[in-house]
């Protein structure tokens, strides 16, 4: 079963071609990395996959449902099977750690507070933060906040986890712990995952395969070693950090504006 399927997907906004000829699919149980320099089209790819943008060409399917055909209610049902870790963590600052994790469980399952409390404790335990229930997001370190965000991402026991730049802004020790935690969660919850990052070294340790997006196109795809040994000059430049500024398209601002904007 294909979890995600992009068929000849293209996206043009205000006459600017942001993505073109994207062919991609991933199956249940896979862990796939999406890498590329800033402004390459990774966020656009993610927005299309999550249903926040519609392609102007081709078709995007999620859990074998064509996203251009699904109603809002069906999209909400599809997202029940997904969890997401945000680059900004997106924790609700006025709520405690407990409330941040309990909220989606309470909203969707309407369980008794005792059961919710046990579930929250279990989720926090799985990210190594048992006992942090009463802390407020402002009292958490960057690494702890990311782990709380991860605990919330798995709160509804998703089948598919999406990570948006999970390693950004983390120190090497936290990063290493986070990678271990991600792999542990993948095993524990039997989830598939898609990780968007610009850090190929970190990504290579946790994914089965990866795609490289460059100027809105997939320029390399395959297992980690296949991508690492790609003969494509752009890929090699990116791996070795030789990217020249003029090679990066200035699309970042536009895409940042789109996510979370018009769809709500």
């Amino acid at each position: 079963m294909d979890l995600v399927n992009f068929e000849q997907v293209g996206l043009t906004i205000n006459g600017r071609k942001l993505l073109s000829d994207i062919e991609f699919s991933m199956s249940k149980g896979e862990h796939v990395g999406v890498i590329g320099p800033s402004g390459a089209g990774k966020s656009t790819f993610l927005n299309l996959l999550l249903g926040f943008l519609s392609p102007t060409e081709g078709r995007v399917s999620l859990f074998e449902e064509d996203l251009s055909q699904v109603e809002v209610a069906s999209l909400e049902d599809l997202r029940m099977n997904m969890g997401m870790l945000f680059q900004t963590n997106a924790l609700f600052a006025e709520w405690s750690v407990y409330e941040n994790i309990a909220f989606p469980i309470r909203y969707h399952y309407g369980l008794s507070e005792e059961i919710i409390s046990n579930m929250v404790a279990m989720k926090l335990d799985s990210v190594g933060l048992r006992g942090a229930e009463k802390l407020m997001p402002s009292e958490l370190s960057g690494g702890m906040a990311r782990r709380v965000s991860l605990a919330r991402a798995v709160a509804l026991d998703p089948k598919f986890l999406v990570y948006d730049e999970p390693f950004t802004g983390q120190d090497p020790v936290t990063k290493s712990n986070l990678k271990e935690l991600m792999m542990k969660l993948h095993r524990q919850y039997h989830v598939s995952s898609l990780i968007v990052s610009h850090d190929i070294q970190d990504l290579s340790e946790i994914v089965d395969r990866m795609i490289v997006i460059w100027s809105g196109r997939i320029v390399a795809a395959g297992t980690v070693s296949e991508v690492m040994n790609s003969s494509d000059k752009k890929v090699q430049d990116f791996i070795q950090g030789k990217l020249e500024m003029e090679q990066v398209q200035e699309k970042g601002d536009l895409l940042t504006d789109l996510i979370g904007g018009p769809h709500v």
């Binding site: 809002v72 997202r79 997401m84 945000f86 680059q87 997106a90 609700f92 989606p104 919330r152 979370g260």
Partner: peptide, 15 residues
């Protein structure tokens, strides 16, 4: 909106 909380709610399947 800046803190991506609307996207977060949508991803938690909350309208």
């Amino acid at each position: 909106q800046i803190n991506q909380q609307f996207v977060c709610l949508e991803m938690l399947s909350i309208n």
